[in-house]
Design a protein around this nucleic acid. Structure first.
Lengths: 273, 273
DNA sequence: GAGTGGATTTCGCAT
DNA sequence: ATGCGAAGTCCACTC
């Protein structure tokens, strides 16, 4: 191994733990502590966690995670950013404890962790420049529809996207082959009642605004049964759109091409009113 | 230390890592791996994470966390539950890699982690029976209002809570001192436009359903300016309620008392229609 | 700094 | 299994 800073201690004492954690925070290393602890949180809410064996991680940006042996979510935490740490040893009766206090302002909140037994401390200066890319988001679906409008239907022409129209933002706004105004609401997962109501609001708002008929299309991989009923009763359309295919379309094109498209299409935008 | 299962290895080889991780998963221990890795995720979406040094945790319930050196959230993960692991060593060129595959159905998704270097493996059978209690949640606010309705206003009498009324669930439903029907929407933080619209929907739905006037009250510590304007224009009321005070009220009472209250109040419930 | 909407949200609860 | 809303949500983005 060739790491600038790497420490691992099995069953360290409280004093030794204090020293290593302080040093590791100074060095901006990621710290892992496994041991028996209890936790108090005060801030937006207030919580108390009774003693038990947990894994805690302190990251170089101050992020704090307290993980129980089960579950994806930390039981207590502090998001990264402007976090201050106070580490000290205290005596409870004649028993030494390690107290880790994590403090942030904005909002003001603190997490206090009391360890009476530590199984492991390990700290590393981690180097991670790796890029992370996520595909098949709602954004991809929108891009794919704008780049390839026939996904929605033949002859559909997008005019605007992310257009503010008082109740909120319309995902895509355009005209169909017969020249009718079309409003599209995109959902990357099963669309529920909420999505239909949102679409209906936009349709109504634009109808009022432009004074003629407006078609509403819900573009999603699926709709819930309730949403489908609602769609039909409101005279809105559903178009099944596969997020993955959208993602493939978008990621098959170079980033430059897409940027260019959105640059040029901006000049073609029609005012909504 | 007195743990039934605890292993820590500094800079283990790929083969040794494989063996230890398999064994630790069998034993349902929590596993920590620190090393250089890259990650592919496929499922509801698709993602790729290029090589870098990270901390990964596999918990006894199968939950998987992949943490970069900064940030509160895992870059990739798998929630606990019905997760299957396949661990193997593979050759890339002449270089041995450790491949950890985490698979779940419902929804079908997989995370594949490739390690080419491992700095640390540590596994523990953790014992954690500690109780977790959270105060000042929306639930506390609801309980406090039901137990002590004068929080809302003098003479208010709750009748139901968490009542399904087509657009969703009404937080609290009751009557005021003049006998008018009251619907309460609770928010534990600054209430925005969204909260007001939600309340308005419930008021409208119930008005239609019972055919007489319905008051709507938004109970929250604060409202946004826009939300306040909207409230006024819709003829809805705002009542400032402090979540922490609510929590104090609730937690000052014994759990039994509260349970008894909710038991008895259920018998007093009036049908909503 | 506040407000708004999305998330591979997760989690829990009710249908 | 599905649907719906809350969360100490967090996060990114706008005003």
């Amino acid at each position: 191994m060739n790491k600038s800073y790497a420490i691992t201690l099995d069953n360290p004492g409280i004093e030794e733990s204090l020293r290593i954690i302080k040093k590791s925070i100074e060095r901006k290393a990621a710290i892992i502590v496994v041991g028996n602890c209890w936790v108090k949180y005060r801030g937006r809410a207030k919580s108390r966690l009774e003693p038990g064996e947990r894994i805690i991680i302190i990251k170089e940006d101050g992020a704090l995670l307290i993980h129980r042996p089960v579950g994806y979510e930390p039981v207590n935490w502090m998001p990264g950013g402007e976090i201050i740490y106070h580490i000290e040893t205290i005596e409870e009766g004649s028993r030494p404890l390690l107290l880790i206090r994590s403090i942030r302002r904005h909002p003001r909140e603190t997490v206090a962790i009391y360890f009476d037994q530590i199984f492991l401390i390990s700290a590393f200066k981690l180097v991670d420049e790796g890029e992370f890319s996520l595909y098949a988001s709602e954004e991809d679906m929108q891009k794919a529809i704008l780049l390839n409008p026939s996904i929605i239907e033949d002859g559909f022409k997008p005019i605007e996207y992310e257009k503010k129209v008082e109740p909120g933002f319309v995902d895509v706004y355009g005209v169909d082959k017969r020249g009718r105004v079309v409003v599209i609401e995109i959902k990357r997962r099963t669309a529920g009642r909420e999505a239909v109501l949102q679409l209906a609001k936009y349709v109504k708002a634009i109808k009022t605004s432009i004074g003629r008929e407006v078609r509403g299309i819900l573009a999603a991989p699926q709709v819930s049964k309730e949403a489908l009923t609602l769609l039909e009763s409101l005279g809105l359309d559903f178009k099944k759109v596969d997020p993955k295919k959208c993602s493939e379309i978008v990621h098959a094109m170079s980033e430059k091409k897409i940027t260019d498209y959105f640059q040029s299409s901006k000049q073609k935008l029609l005012p909504l009113k």
